[in-house]
Design a binder for these strands. Sequence first.
DNA 1: ATGCATGCAAATGCTTTGCAGCGTG
DNA 2: CACGCTGCAAAGCATTTGCATGCAT
Lengths: 150, 150
Amino acid sequence: MDTSGSELSVLSAALKGAGIRMTHQRIEVFSELQASHGHPSVTEIYEGVRKRLPSISPDTVYRTLRLFSELGLIIPHSSTSSVTRFDVNVHEHHHFVCTRCSRIFDFTSSSIDPLEVPREAESFGEVQGVQLEVRGICRDCLRRERTQEE
Amino acid sequence: MDTSGSELSVLSAALKGAGIRMTHQRIEVFSELQASHGHPSVTEIYEGVRKRLPSISPDTVYRTLRLFSELGLIIPHSSTSSVTRFDVNVHEHHHFVCTRCSRIFDFTSSSIDPLEVPREAESFGEVQGVQLEVRGICRDCLRRERTQEE
DNA sequence: ATGCATGCAAATGCTTTGCAGCGTG
DNA sequence: CACGCTGCAAAGCATTTGCATGCAT
């Protein structure tokens, strides 16, 4: 089955909706993403697109992927911020990760704890821990964005 | 309640067990971690320790935090690897994250899906998505480590 | 005493940014 | 045809590493 056409319309709609231009580079990065398996890195996308668009530069790929993330077309895995943060709390707990400021908030939940490891996950290797990861926009960022839009 | 003594014994045991020396720097980084709230970054720990140990260098903090991660005393949030990876799969799914090679494996689970957002998480802000994050060591890394130990 | 750990400084690698020219709408 | 987008090159950061000295065991 060929879904490339319908997928492209997703891109078209997303860009048009935000008043952003549809360029060759963006189209190629988008289709490379669709064709990719797993969780591609910037370099992997870059190398893939380069086969069809040899003149594309890495920074355009960076910019494009960031744009797509902002549009919600893709999700950067965990913190966008470059600094590593450490979890000192060794007890079972879950995370609310802010997709804007990348701060992490801990919580526990009586309704889901104790959380058990699904069978499906065990097949990948030796499990060390499980937790829920809730992505969202924290109160502070919501407030800041609201203020800026006024 | 003063738990610093008992916490330090955790450090002592972990280091002794691995045949690693107990130094001032390691003790100070460890207690700074205990005293920290949330999810400290390397810089935050460094600044904190520097008040008591002005001569400590950033790279020692880096090395120490990496050591503590390997010993399981702390958990680096998300991938240790510096490259950003993107999730192209917009459908609900979960992640098995390898703590060695930082590769991410997707899975879905009939036993837990659909996954609902716990009440506790909603108080932090606007929720965009939820997923399970299983941390562990993938098959490839397990095999590699077994081979090297022979 | 021995050799691991630290501090210093330089290197590395990912990602971002300023700017001039190009192409989309 | 205006303005946003790209490519280039250089800068910016977080993190890592080589090496000589110092300190824990």
